[in-house]
């Protein structure tokens, strides 16, 4: 696997494997959604996953924190294998943060309460400490002044930044992004991407399902192309965009780059 340093951001990938998928298969009823997925992610690596809709890319990253169950193969996160064992699932979810397409903020809690909920109830952090930490992260995503508001009072871009801060409050080792900008108006995409780029620069291990090819070019260490439930091609961004190996990849790129 090639790991080339990217021009704009310094990769901090260390070579230590944090996430490993070995021969993962998944079915929805009779439908074969994931076919023999093999993937290794090293610490600090930034991976962008793209592909047409229905290709299984969201399903794959949702398997990594067990929002979906896989039926064959192994998924190992930080040395913990995901099985039926609730303890293992808890362990993995503590270390893996996730940002959703539709933000999924808790509408009945303020921004600050959204951020403190998991640290208090999962990490057993004193409320004061949790609030202080939450404020730090809210400053990082540049919306500390919204802490006392409710999610419904914020714009989409602001909500997504709160969602990122909320995940960061758990101090995760890995962040999963499931199409974080797809539900946003164009003028709000940039503020979220900027936050994500900043996060990437701080050395966070990231797996992003996204159609933002600009983001992939600037930030990613590796781009993965999925179609029909399998990984068809993976490569460092320059190679991936300029010299795609498979006909499927070429077709996909020609379709999205036209616009």
């Amino acid at each position: 696997m090639s790991e080339t340093d990217n021009a704009s951001t310094q990769s901090q990938a260390t070579g230590e494997v944090t996430i490993e998928l070995r021969g993962v298969h998944k079915w929805y009823g009779q439908f074969h959604v994931l076919k023999d997925i093999n993937l290794q992610v090293t610490r600090g690596e930034r991976i962008v996953i793209c592909g047409p809709s229905g290709s299984g890319k969201s399903t794959m990253i949702r398997c990594i924190n067990r929002l979906e169950e896989h039926q064959q193969g192994q998924i190992i996160v930080d040395g913990t294998e995901l099985t039926d064992d609730v303890k293992h699932i808890d362990q993995v979810r503590k270390e893996v943060g996730m940002v959703f397409q539709h933000f999924n903020l808790f509408p009945h809690l303020t921004v600050l309460e959204n951020c403190c909920l998991a640290p208090i109830w999962v990490r057993k952090m004193p409320r004061r400490e949790a609030e202080a930490a939450a404020m730090r992260y809210l400053e990082k995503v540049k919306i500390p002044e919204q802490a006392k508001k409710y999610p419904g009072q914020l714009s989409g871009g602001q909500q997504q930044r709160v969602a990122i801060a909320r995940s960061l409050c758990m101090n995760p080792n890995v962040m999963l992004f499931d199409e974080p900008t797809s539900a946003l108006d164009p003028e709000m995409i940039k503020e979220v991407l900027d936050t994500m780029i900043e996060l990437a620069e701080s050395g966070m291990t990231m797996l992003c399902v996204t159609h933002e090819m600009g983001f992939a070019k600037t930030v990613a260490d590796r781009v993965i192309f999925m179609d029909g439930g399998e990984i068809i091609e993976e490569n460092e961004p320059n190679e991936f965009f300029n010299n795609p190996q498979s006909d499927r990849t070429q077709l996909f790129l020609s379709q999205i780059l036209q616009h």
């Binding site: 399998e230 190996q245 006909d247």
Partner: peptide, 8 residues
């Protein structure tokens, strides 16, 4: 360029 054959 390789032609991709989908996994059955």
């Amino acid at each position: 360029m390789s032609v991709h054959t989908p996994h059955p």
